[in-house]
């Protein structure tokens, strides 16, 4: 499964990471090396083996439906990012987090 720079760009877009053409080329060679390492897995027959997601065979614990959280908006929005575009203002307004217009 050889990767191309087009694949890199597609994956990078899915992951929302900007890559330039030169980045894509450099990344391609590194990722190809890593995928080569990963390919070793294909030598093993895993028919009928149950996949292992967790190391302990335990089941989900359930939480009582009781409100335990209080309003911490002020503390949480103190660390909101600067609005960007050169301004020092925080990217919040009236308690809302601000982002460039969402288009539906």
């Amino acid at each position: 499964m050889a990767l191309s720079t087009e694949d890199i760009k597609k994956i990078a877009h899915l992951a929302r990471i900007e890559v330039s053409d030169s980045d894509a080329n450099a990344t391609l060679s590194k990722l190809t090396g890593i995928l080569g390492l990963i390919e070793q897995m294909q030598a093993v027959n895993t028919d009928g083996i149950v996949p292992m997601s967790h190391s302990q065979d335990v089941v989900q614990r359930l939480r009582d439906d009781v409100v335990t959280k209080t309003n911490q908006r002020e503390a949480f929005q103190k660390i909101s990012p600067a609005v960007g575009n050169g301004s020092d203002a925080r990217a919040v307004d009236g308690g809302l987090y601000l982002v460039p217009k969402v288009i539906e």
Binding site: S80, P81, A91
Partner: peptide
Amino acid sequence: VRYGHRASEYTDLMDMYC
């Protein structure tokens, strides 16, 4: 969006993410 690094220049939401 809520914390951490936000690029200083971007054209739209997608660009801001990337």
